[in-house]
Design a protein around this nucleic acid. Sequence first.
DNA 1: CCTTCTTGCCTTGCTGAGCAAGGTACCATA
DNA 2: TATGGTACCTTGCTCAGCAAGGCAAGAAGG
Lengths: 126, 126
Amino acid sequence: MPAKVVNDCHSTPEHMEYDREFLTGTVGVLILSLLCERAMYGYEILQEAERRSASQFLMKEGTLYPALHQMERAGFLKAAWHESDNGRARKYYSLTAKGRRHAESKRRQWESISAAMRAILGAAHG
Amino acid sequence: MPAKVVNDCHSTPEHMEYDREFLTGTVGVLILSLLCERAMYGYEILQEAERRSASQFLMKEGTLYPALHQMERAGFLKAAWHESDNGRARKYYSLTAKGRRHAESKRRQWESISAAMRAILGAAHG
DNA sequence: CCTTCTTGCCTTGCTGAGCAAGGTACCATA
DNA sequence: TATGGTACCTTGCTCAGCAAGGCAAGAAGG
């Protein structure tokens, strides 16, 4: 039996290292919420998430791009290529109407769970 | 490609149906936090989680028991059989010292993530 | 000139969590 | 006699995150 490893999380660096499991689900809400404000391209989403969370969230490309493609297939996003100043091609994603509704649903779910967790954890750690 | 399905979450029943992904990670903190207060047996944990979250969390047995076993193997929990009033055997789990430290770490992680999410979502939904 | 860094997109293949769906056993109630 | 609650358990599937790669092009520095 080859042990567990990966993440011990006993140290407290400037930005906390999270057990991967905790991020499950957050990625979706994160993307949808950011795109709620304005259209963005993939690389920009990575940077925005990092910036706004004060470097707490360091989303990986291997997480982001597949997620974007899946949401596009699901009809939540639509993509459009645009040239940037530096001549570099960027793929901008924006929310569809369906995606906007979905974003709202996800946001409500997250807040509901967050509240329920606070109710339980709060009682526990007194 | 056989569609997505499973959960639409557009209705708003008394207790919200969550997309499974959101629960990932929460289960661990939940168990550890409850056991922080007192020793409990599996079935009791299911009920407590449901009660305290006002039926928001309906943890499944197929989720709970394997999680308990894994945490025991990891040295976070220790188990002890006790007879109940009705002569039924119950397996009580309690935290080890290591488990107590782990619980604290997990709780801090959750709160940190929760805060970061609020920072991003709050800005988004204005 | 060559290397390295940054931007910007992408993929394949593994791991591991949650869970549906089953099973066991006992007791009480209808 | 069956149904439903208590109380424990398992096998096998799905799917999200991610490590680790790759492609292309421009900028920076030696």
